[in-house]
Simulated assay, not measured.
Amino acid sequence: MSVSNIQQLGKVAVLFGGTSAEREISILSGTGVLEALRSRGVDAHAFDPAERDLVELKREGFARCFIALHGRHGEDGTVQGALELLGIPYTGSGVMASSVAMDKVMTKRLWLADGLPTPKYVRLAADQQSREQIRAVPDVLGLPLIVKPPREGSSIGVTKVAGYSEMQDAVALSAKYDADVLCEEFIEGEEVTCAVLGHGLDAVALPVVRIAAPAGAYDYQNKYFTDDVKYHCPSGLPEVEEKEIQRLTLAAYRTLGCRGWGRSDVMIRASDRKPFLLELNTSPGMTTHSLVPMSARAIGIAYEDLCVRVLASAALDSEGKV
């Protein structure tokens, strides 16, 4: 963007930190975004909703917000709703799409209604977690299977269960983060991710990133704090598979009504190379280990320019851009 266009973005608040279990990662993302925007001449300022009231955004004359919050009270539609009431445009999806995408069970229901592939699942509500009900889950989904909180991210509270005897502890761990527990069919194969920029029919999928984690352990620690995970972009997948994952990701993004940017996580089943959608992140990570910047870089978009591009897409649902 030209200097004059940069100035038109106005005073910008980079929202990061927050109160979710992903606060630590949000601080890493937000710090990177803040420095990137400032390096491009944007009048950007740090703003932590855990420490300051959002009303101060209006009082201090912020023209738009870059949401670098992850998880609850940041990625789930709550902050988006507050910014709608304040009339301050923000990056990423609107209230409904953010809320639905944050809930993996609701996301699956919408995807399945549109015929999009996602692993089989069992939802254990708070009143459906008796020993007998928990023990019955592997009979439905088979083993191994995945147990996770449906409204957390960054692999927090996730367990890969290999046997019946592990189910109780896995459910107990997940229930620490969410009253509901999502049990999901385990897809044996390769994990990939695909980013999207834009809105509606103008949205475009970026190159696919293939993830190779040590012993398949793509967990919180390996995602953010080690260099043991290998990321491949270009993915090295056959072109037909790459294009199918991009097509599926765009369909998944549009089904949920997302805008601005997002990133899908996908498993490719080894037995038949069929892709399965796991989730869609509406406020993707922007740390040094994050995957959207890596994908953008593969087509010549620098981290700093990616941040400016996302910021420029800031909007309000009330503007009719849902």
Rank of each mutant, 00 (worst) to 15 (best):
D53T: 11
L145P: 03
V33Y: 02
V137S: 03
W261A: 08
T107A: 15
E191H: 10
P284W: 05
S154R: 03
E132I: 07
A296D: 11
L57Y: 02
A46K: 10
Q246F: 15
A312L: 08
L141H: 04
T255F: 07
G18E: 01
K176Q: 15
T193K: 07
L9V: 02
A203P: 08
D114G: 03
W261C: 04
S295T: 04
S318W: 06
W261T: 06
D114K: 15
G163Q: 14
R38V: 06
L110Y: 12
E319S: 13
M294W: 12
E239N: 12
V3F: 07
R297I: 05
S20W: 01
D48H: 02
G18N: 02
L28G: 00
G92E: 01
V122E: 06
L291E: 10
I299F: 12
H45K: 01
I27Y: 04
V122T: 12
E241R: 12
K148V: 01
K58M: 07
R210T: 12
G300C: 14
G285A: 11
L86C: 07
S20E: 00
K274W: 05
E24V: 07
M286G: 08
P144C: 02
S154C: 09
R72T: 11
E24N: 13
L197G: 05
N281V: 09
I146W: 02
A217D: 11
E319Y: 14
L15K: 00
S20F: 00
M294S: 08
Y253N: 06
A175M: 09
